[in-house]
């Protein structure tokens, strides 16, 4: 069926090998200097995001592959006892010690849910882990040393909102069947792994690597698309348009959330970008930027749609958006 329209893998592989070798060896000669400078800017930002995100995506797929190959659903059930809403709090606590950013978290969460972690707990990880981790804490602290309330709000609200989001998703989807898409061609291959357990460290490592390599391509294609769109916005969007609404209490929160979504920054770096807005934006809108971006952005939305049911992703996006928006406005109404 499909096989007939396929290009023979070995021929394609050989051609690509030659192509890459030529580019690598003759890159100085081949450089296309005449490219328009706007597109060189797009390319620079695109490659910057891809090269920076790649190591973290690799960590994510390696971890996911280890879980896939060597963690059984029974073990998961032992580590995460309880059902329903009882899983939310432990999930948020585990999320705080997992040092995974938003590039790495999607493959891991998808894998955990496939292995039997309740989806509501998985989604708590997904929104909590990219913010509640030590590296992000340090960078936020350094960027907002002279505005510590933003640091407290970011980490306090991230914890609370992750629970709220998990709870809402649980209530909406508890009786609606699986939230993950099952992809054709994937179902039948998942039984053959566990018999290889006893083969020693080298065989295990090889198996993890080969699984991680496949998963890198599965996840990476969404990263590439997201990074490219983000690079377009980064190059052509005039930020003074945003600044003109920066001082309005409510509109600025909405604008900064949209901005965080489009920029798709790594949660480890977003605090510095936020601090560069300086006094032009309200503390509430800066906090919204710092909370929303790691939970939901352009590059991970594309991954989410690929791996979770469409309806679930839409409800997830609405829930996260509403929770961050309301949470930030409420918090600042109380503390100021």
């Amino acid at each position: 069926m499909v096989n007939q329209t396929r290009i023979r893998p070995d021929i394609l592989g050989g051609a690509v090998l030659l192509f890459i070798l030529i580019m690598f060896l003759f890159q100085d000669v081949l450089t296309f200097e005449a490219a328009p400078s706007a597109w060189i800017n797009v390319n620079t930002i695109f490659l910057g995001i891809v090269i920076e995100a790649a190591p973290f995506l690799l960590i994510g797929v390696l971890l996911s592959s280890m879980i896939h190959l060597y963690v059984t659903p029974e073990q998961i059930a032992r580590w995460m006892p309880g059902k329903g809403i009882k899983t939310l709090l432990p999930a948020a606590l585990v999320g705080t010690i997992l040092p995974l950013c938003e590039c790495a978290i999607v493959p891991v969460v998808r894998r955990l849910i496939k292995k039997g972690v309740p989806f509501q707990a998985g989604m708590v990880f997904l929104v909590a882990a990219p913010i509640l981790n030590p590296v992000v804490l340090a960078s936020t602290f350094f960027a907002f040393r002279n505005q510590l309330e933003i640091v407290y709000v970011r980490f306090g609200l991230a914890f609370v909102l992750s629970l709220v989001i998990g709870l809402i998703l649980y209530l909406v989807f508890k009786n609606k069947g699986p939230v993950i898409r099952t992809r054709p061609g994937e179902v039948h291959v998942h039984h053959h792994h566990h018999h290889e357990h006893g083969q020693g460290v080298a065989a295990r490592l090889k198996e993890i690597c080969s699984h991680a390599a496949e998963e890198f391509f599965m996840m990476g294609k969404y990263l590439l698309i997201g990074a490219f769109i983000a690079a377009l916005f980064q190059t052509f969007l005039d930020r003074s348009v945003l600044l003109s609404i920066g001082s309005d209490e409510i509109a600025s929160v909405a604008v900064m959330m949209g901005f965080a979504y489009i920029l798709s920054l790594c949660s480890e770096a977003d605090a510095f970008v936020a601090s560069s807005f300086g006094n032009q934006f309200t503390p509430a809108s800066i906090s919204a930027f710092l909370l929303y971006g790691p939970m939901l952005d352009l590059k991970n939305t594309i991954m989410l749609f690929a791996f979770f049911r469409t309806k679930f992703v839409i409800v997830f996006m609405i829930t996260v958006t509403a929770a961050v928006f309301a949470g930030v406005l409420l918090t600042f109404a109380v503390i100021s």
């Binding site: 995001i49 920076e52 983000a230 920054l265 970008v273 560069s276």
Partner: peptide, 9 residues
């Protein structure tokens, strides 16, 4: 630049 060009101010 802090981490990568995307965050350059």
């Amino acid at each position: 630049m802090t981490c990568c060009v995307a965050d350059a101010g």
